[in-house]
Design a binder for these strands. Sequence first.
DNA 1: GCGACAG
DNA 2: ATCTTGTCGC
Length: 235
Amino acid sequence: MEQGAGVAERPEMPEAWPHTVADAEAEQERLRPFVDLADPGPETVRYVAGLDVAYEGQDEGDRLTAAVVVLDARTLDVVDQVVVRERARFPYVPGLFAFRELPPLLSALDRVRVTPELLVCDGYGLAHPRRFGLACHVGVLTGLPAIGVAKTAFVGRYEVPASERGAWAPIVERDEVVGRALRTRTGVKPVYVSQGHRIGLDNACRHVLRLTPEYRLPEPIRLADRLSRSGVPAA
DNA sequence: GCGACAG
DNA sequence: ATCTTGTCGC
């Protein structure tokens, strides 16, 4: 997949990858205006990609394994998968982990042969201290619609949604709806969905439910997680 | 000031 | 993220 295949106005890449908290936060502030939250996004897509990264510790220099799995959105069949191993260029810092996971993820996206029309990220988008989580960041840099799906709460408050699959409750912070706690499996802890880029919250949740036929996590993320841990594409 | 804190 | 045994339930 070509860096920037597809669309609109995108920012210049930073001259150097940030390596301090202050620089990283400034970069988030610089890029945040490029996020498109008004675009409702595609109703249906042909190809959807799941992104995830596995690693041993929290430090800079640790070995990271990024995985991108592209699925046929209708059948959920895997049509392409890429694994990339790189050294972390940033330590794990809550609110800044895009600076840790993004480099290998972008490398992997570069090597994907089937260009996805939607990215599903492991983490948050809008539901972020500076409204610029990983899903926003990867969306802005690639120009592709992106959704954030997280496994644990980070910012904001929410009521516990009803126990049936499909039930949800808004995640609110400072009188602002930043995402949804969405039940993907009846009787199972919800996932936390937020807009990344070029997609509406309703639509994002629709896609997440459609991509979650059996497990708590959407298939694209589940498969990317499995791939990043094994480091070897399944037979 | 203190704790909490996506992965 | 990763470390880790058994255990409850469909």
